[in-house]
Simulated assay, not measured.
Amino acid sequence: MPDQQSSLRAQRRAETQRAIQAHAVRLFTERGYDATTVADVAQAAGVSPMTVYRHFPTKEDLVLADPHGRLVAERIAASPADRPLVRRIGGALVEAAAALTGGHGGQPAADRAFLLARLHLMISTPALRARHLDNHYALQRAIVDALGHDAGDPDAAFHAQVAASACLAAMHTALVRWAEDDGRADLPGLIAKALTAAFGEHPTEPAGPPASR
């Protein structure tokens, strides 16, 4: 029973977070980020400002908070440890993008529209662009942790950090292009294309034979 109650609480918390963030993104898009207050978001969501702050410590978090890091980390942890780092990370980024834009039993069009609205806000709002770098570092850390390269092997950790940073840079370029194209392109395919351009091979297709010397 305690486990069931804990699961129900976690589910209600997640539903509340999604509802608050959905109202926030809608209001920021309609009125402008700077013109919308946390109190406005709370009123639209039917909760108190304190409840908003309990779920989103800062106003920026109302846009920037997302499950991307968790999804990517889960997929990396489940990938074969003997695969090259770039393929493990790149494959996870593509798979997570597919999950976020396609949904699992949800409404794909709504999922894509929500992500697109968040991206437009991040690109057009100076305060969000500045904070987005923090999210980049947090996702990089989550990736390195999921790969299992800790401080016990500094060289391995360094290689993982470099690979994660390079893959995230390619993904960011794809996200900006997707937003500029108003979401008409296939986002997972666009991320895969960016990774292929950066590293010379598709992150989810079988690796080809080694080049002959």
Rank of each mutant, 00 (worst) to 15 (best):
A77T: 13
R54Q: 10
P206S: 11
T36N: 02
A127S: 13
A24Q: 02
T16C: 14
S124G: 11
A211D: 05
H202D: 14
R13T: 09
G32H: 04
R70Q: 12
L128H: 00
I20E: 03
A160L: 12
G189L: 15
M1I: 11
L187I: 02
L116C: 05
M1R: 10
A97K: 01
S48C: 09
A99V: 12
L147C: 08
S48H: 08
H149G: 01
L27V: 03
F56D: 01
R112I: 07
L62R: 15
A110R: 08
L121H: 00
V47K: 01
A14C: 10
E30D: 14
Q21R: 15
R112C: 12
A160P: 06
T37M: 06
T101D: 11
I191E: 02
M171Q: 15
A39Y: 08
A77P: 06
A163T: 09
P206V: 11
A192G: 14
L64K: 04
A130D: 13
Q17K: 15
I143K: 04
D186P: 13
I89C: 06
D150I: 05
A113R: 15
L100K: 09
R177F: 03
L115Y: 07
A19N: 08
S79F: 05
R118Y: 06
R141Q: 11
G152F: 02
D34C: 02
P203M: 14
P84K: 13
S79T: 14
T125A: 04
A65E: 15
G46N: 11
A163V: 10
L62F: 11
R13M: 09
R131K: 14
P203I: 12
H68A: 07
T16E: 13
P80K: 12
A163N: 10
L195W: 01
T173D: 15
T101P: 01
I89F: 09
E60M: 12
Y33K: 00
E180Q: 14
V47F: 02
L187F: 05
L128G: 04
G105A: 08
S6K: 14
F199E: 03
R141A: 13
K193D: 10
A77R: 15
H172N: 14
Y137I: 08
F28W: 02
D150M: 10
A14S: 14
M171G: 01
T58S: 15
G106N: 13
A81Q: 11
P154M: 00
I76Q: 00
A164L: 11
T16R: 14
G152R: 03
G208L: 15
V25T: 05
A14D: 09
H120I: 08
A19R: 15
C167F: 01
S165K: 15
A97I: 00
A170C: 10
T37D: 09
C167M: 07
S79L: 06
L93M: 05
T36I: 00
A179G: 15
G105F: 07
A81S: 11
T37E: 14
P188R: 01
